[in-house]
Simulated assay, not measured.
Amino acid sequence: MNARTSARTSAQGLDVLYTAERDVTGWQQRHARGEVPGRWPYGLDELAAGGADVRAVGLPEPGRLRSAVARLAPGVAALASPAGRRVAVAWDENVAHRAAVLAPRTPLHAGAIWVTDAVARGRDDDATRARVRALRRADGVWCLSSAQLEPLERLLPGVPVSLLRFGVDAGFFRAAPPVERPLVVSAGGDRDRDATTLFAALEEVLRARPETEVVVQSRSTATAPVGVRVVPHLPHAQLRDLYARASAVVVATSPNLHVSGMTVALEAMATARPVVVTATPGVEDYVVDGVTGHLARSGDPASVAERLVALLDDPDAAAAAGRRGRERVEADLNTARMARDLRAIVGVGSGPAAAAVPAAPAR
């Protein structure tokens, strides 16, 4: 039995790692007030549902001076606790990097999100190399897009790589009835969002259907067309309410491997809203073209606009697509199923359900 297999089969619990800045305790308080989905970010508190002993740990940023004293930080001290054989779970490569620096001997399973695109685009800076090193020391790595599997297998020789399909909180994002007033919504602003294509498409939509209201949550500096209301930030609860008023939700991205915009697409589907998403590799893991929404050509405003107008012109078909999207979230693309799959990937948890313990303090 090799070291990776041994770490998997002998684990007694999970330490779910977050950056200290994420402030899981504060997130739990906001969740209790109904402000955010999931008791922990990404719904990872549901890892405890399989009987696993699960706790959240916040890791500080390892700087040159802080690395020498990092083990004094509460989060790192929690990782060093001798309370049985434990495995750490890092949602992405940035958290995995902190774990590699601060607790290098802790068995680790990690997600990979942005590193595949960074490598594909030829980035060879210190940050990218550090994250690749962190993933190479992991006992296992998962990704959220099938398009990342082959690149990660090449990048991480000897490290088991798994597909973990993402899920959202189907209780927080509830199905809403169809609306009468036409409203198109877009949200999100990560590095792969294509605001230029989005705004050009929305300009075409407004030209064809000027009665349509359009709201975009984005921090992009691109100039929005007349008639598009841009909001820099919306809290989760307000964004959920905006989805509920929408006729359709649109996500435009540049080509990428990690399915930028999947969260918005699934939140909209959970709200029973049809989606229009640009067709990048891996997106069909989440959106079924012509069933739960429509896929448009990347970088093609006319393609995006055509699909939005089709939904606006056929409310019955749009409502049916929204219902099918909600059904898919309820059946599969939710945090409970994601947590089950992640427990299987990590090899922890069986038997009766157990409650997640409070987050370890982090500074």
Rank of each mutant, 00 (worst) to 15 (best):
V249N: 12
G227K: 06
V287D: 05
A279E: 14
V24T: 01
L308T: 07
L342D: 07
G293W: 12
D23E: 10
S145N: 13
L108V: 04
V69Q: 06
H233P: 00
G84S: 11
W40K: 01
H258F: 15
R129A: 14
Q238F: 01
E21N: 07
S186I: 08
V348F: 11
L102D: 13
S162Y: 12
A147K: 03
R8M: 13
V205Y: 02
E330M: 09
D192G: 01
W40D: 00
H31F: 11
A360C: 14
P210W: 00
V184L: 11
P225L: 09
G227I: 03
A355H: 09
A70H: 03
V119N: 04
R4V: 04
G140N: 03
V16H: 12
A96I: 02
N94F: 11
L242I: 02
N2H: 14
A195C: 12
R219S: 05
A310S: 15
V132F: 05
T19A: 14
R86E: 08
S298V: 06
A170Y: 00
G351R: 10
A224D: 03
P74I: 00
P151D: 09
L342Y: 14
L342P: 00
D92I: 01
V214M: 05
D23N: 15
A127Q: 11
T9P: 00
G351L: 08
V249R: 13
L108N: 08
R326W: 06
V89F: 15
G140K: 02
T196G: 15
G50Q: 09
V231R: 14
R193H: 15
L135Y: 05
V346P: 01
R219P: 00
L257F: 02
C143T: 08
T278F: 02
R123P: 06
R181F: 04
V95G: 01
R326L: 05
P151G: 07
V141A: 08
A265N: 14
S67Y: 06
V76L: 07
G84R: 13
V185H: 11
R55H: 04
